[in-house]
């Protein structure tokens, strides 16, 4: 089973991101589970969401405590939340930031970065002040981990994104091309 934990802020689309990733994996024949932790979200407050995928049925119905990978949709969360808590050895931390991976300090392990905010703004997703970065960061995640193909992700976005399907698909593709991989 592969377990992915999303850290975002209310309004960035973390919950939808966890669903879209699950739907992309489902298109590739995986069994999936995606869920938020849990309810009563407020705009701007830290939000956590989870995606599990496996070749066999996903049966454990509890939160993810030891994720294989972590996605951080807002770099300011690095100061507020222990995003790498329980992260498995070799796991990736993908961060939405305009910095290069080697410029991100205080995070142990493999880091990748993408400027999902700039990509979202460019494609008119959300507002400049509150961009919706979820589809961009998923495109970056597809490239950085290879867990889902960009084609499956784009199909899921075109099928199930709540709004601006084409713009979201383009954002995912652009982030796929522009993600930066760091070392260990």
């Amino acid at each position: 089973m592969i377990e992915i934990r999303f850290h975002g802020r209310g309004g960035q689309g973390a919950v939808v991101a966890s669903n879209l990733l699950a739907m992309a994996a489902f298109r590739e024949g995986k069994d999936v589970q995606a869920f938020p932790y849990f309810g009563v979200e407020r705009r701007g407050a830290p939000v956590t969401a989870f995606t599990k995928l496996d070749d066999k049925p996903v049966r454990i119905k509890s939160q993810i405590y030891e994720p294989d990978h972590v996605i951080v949709m807002d770099a300011s969360l690095l100061k507020a939340v222990d995003v790498t808590q329980g992260l498995k050895a070799g796991g990736l931390v993908l961060i939405n930031t305009d910095k290069k991976p080697q410029e991100v300090h205080g995070i142990k392990g493999k880091i990748a970065t993408v400027d999902a905010t700039a990509i979202a703004v460019k494609h008119g997703l959300g507002s400049r002040e509150a961009p919706i970065v979820n589809t961009a960061i998923l495109g970056a995640f597809a490239k950085a981990t290879g867990i889902v193909k960009i084609e499956s992700l784009v199909e899921s976005i075109l099928d199930s994104a709540p709004a601006k399907k084409d713009e979201n698909a383009e954002a995912a593709k652009e982030a796929y091309e522009s993600v930066l991989m760091g070392g260990e």
Partner: peptide, 12 residues
């Protein structure tokens, strides 16, 4: 349905 564990969880 258990709150959130089923109500808000996406499954096949």
């Amino acid at each position: 349905l258990d709150a959130f564990y089923l109500s808000h969880t996406y499954e096949t």
